[in-house]
């Protein structure tokens, strides 16, 4: 059975159980997102994918589509809010694009460009996050972590390994690695 809803006036078909973002991307419509990845269970935390459904804000990666929904995404207001969220992520971590090896191949950077972000706007937090270089093949650059938990989900749900998890609370939330020493090289993360 297939139904439809509208996204910025465009008619979008969807199948039972699909979320708004799944149906939109199947129809070739892009909704900005960071913590959503089509292969993993949605998380709903970054809030970049927020849209207005019948006038109410909701994350499109977790909200199931339903027939007749009126969804707004590319409005001035929503994009300004998405831009502010992106700026928040920039100042929360240490993202210095000009000196970053991922520059040009980074979804955070691409999202910022897409949303027309010209400056971080807020004061930088400059958190102190040591890099974990204890593993021979993998470098854990915590300065760039935006807590999207994609690595957590990939390891837990796909690899069945639980190498990563989030710990701490609030602004002190951080990624941890499965190792008694807290460093990747010792346990958990194995090369090859």
């Amino acid at each position: 059975m297939s139904y439809t809803f509208t996204l910025d006036g465009k008619v979008i078909p969807f199948a039972d159980g699909q979320t708004i973002i799944q149906a939109a991307s199947a129809a070739g419509v892009f909704i900005p997102h960071l913590c959503y990845h089509p292969e993993f269970k949605p998380h709903g935390s970054c809030k970049l994918c927020t849209v207005r459904v019948n006038g109410r804000h909701t994350a499109s990666c977790t909200m199931r589509a339903s027939a007749g929904m009126v969804v707004e995404s590319e409005t001035e207001e929503i994009n300004a809010e998405r831009r502010a969220l992106t700026q928040m992520l920039f100042v929360e971590g240490n993202h210095f694009c000009p000196s970053c090896e991922q520059s040009g191949n980074c979804q955070l950077q691409a999202t910022a460009y897409h949303l027309g972000m010209m400056s971080p706007h807020y004061d930088h937090f400059f958190p102190n996050r040591p890099v974990d270089a204890s593993h021979p093949e993998v470098l854990l650059e915590f300065n760039r972590c935006i807590l999207c938990s994609l690595c957590v989900r990939a390891s837990r749900d796909v690899d069945g390994k639980n190498v990563f998890a989030l710990s701490g609370r609030g602004i002190k939330t951080h990624l941890i690695v499965n190792a008694k020493s807290g460093a990747a090289g010792r346990y958990g993360l194995r090369a090859g």
């Binding site: 709903g44 935390s45 970054c46 809030k47 970049l48 969220l85 928040m88 992520l89 100042v91 929360e92 807020y122 004061d123 937090f125 807590l147 989030l166 701490g168 609370r169 609030g170 602004i171 002190k172 939330t173």
Partner: peptide, 21 residues
């Protein structure tokens, strides 16, 4: 609020800290 934010979502995790600042 800043101390008690669970840190799950961006607006509250970062926003409560910005507000505190």
């Amino acid at each position: 609020f800043q101390h008690e934010s669970c840190g799950f979502c961006t607006p509250c995790r970062v926003g409560t800290s910005l507000l505190k600042n």
